[in-house]
Amino acid sequence: MTEPPTTEPTPPAEAPPLVRIRDLHKRFGDNEVLRGIDLDITEGEVVCLIGPSGSGKSTLLRCVNLLETPTEGTITAAGHDMTGPDADLDAARRDIGMVFQQFNLFSHLSILDNVAIAPRRVCKTPRAEAEAEARRRLAEVGIEGKERARPAQLSGGQQQRVAIARALAMKPRLMLFDEPTSALDPELVGEVLAVMKGLAAEGMTMLVVTHEMGFAREVADRVLFLDGGVIVESGPPAEVLANPRTERAREFLHRVLHPAD
């Protein structure tokens, strides 16, 4: 040590982004779904990913935690080199929460076990401790008194909130959401978005695939418009949603915002 230890931690001038994607390509056979994605997400940022069906939104999201293996390119996320030769994906995924369109709660486990199982089995947290933590997480998302119920006994909105609690129980640094409200009845969408807003307000870094333009406008720091496997527009929601530069984005937004015509 040449320098004396400082009392105040001095962050580097430019904090490294929590997610860094470089030249990401993904092919399914002959179908090139992602065609060169570059994306940085800084800590605490909320990024919403919009775009037409089949544009590769889910694929991009699933590449971040390597549920899909990139064909080309590099990804670092939550401090892990995801695409490196010695990547420890299991360790990395502990720090990256994921919420699915279809909730994917473990159907054979109670609500409490759904939230407590990963800390217990993956982090070897003692059962009592993991369950106490699970109860706190469930309370945070507004699920109380349902600990012993099975997922199928809950409404879609409740299930999705449990799924969020389950991901949060691993204390992730980054949360990925793939159309978290698309499978919900309209009256249940609000309760899930409210939980996500709270999470954003607490400073969670989030990458959210969504068709909820209201949520994007209100919560996102940045909106990305993906089309044909490339990021066509990127900027603050006011810019991208109100004044899209490309014709494709204008068309898409018009369709989403005025589905009746």
């Binding site: 935690n65 995924r93 990963a118 993956v122 991901a167």
Partner: peptide, 24 residues
């Protein structure tokens, strides 16, 4: 989706098999 959820939580393939797939 059950397997993807388990893997996303950091469970290894073996852990996923024992904890999620086999019981179901």
């Amino acid at each position: 989706g059950q397997i993807e959820a388990a893997r996303s939580l950091g469970m290894s393939p073996t852990r996923t098999m024992i904890t999620v797939v086999l019981p179901q």
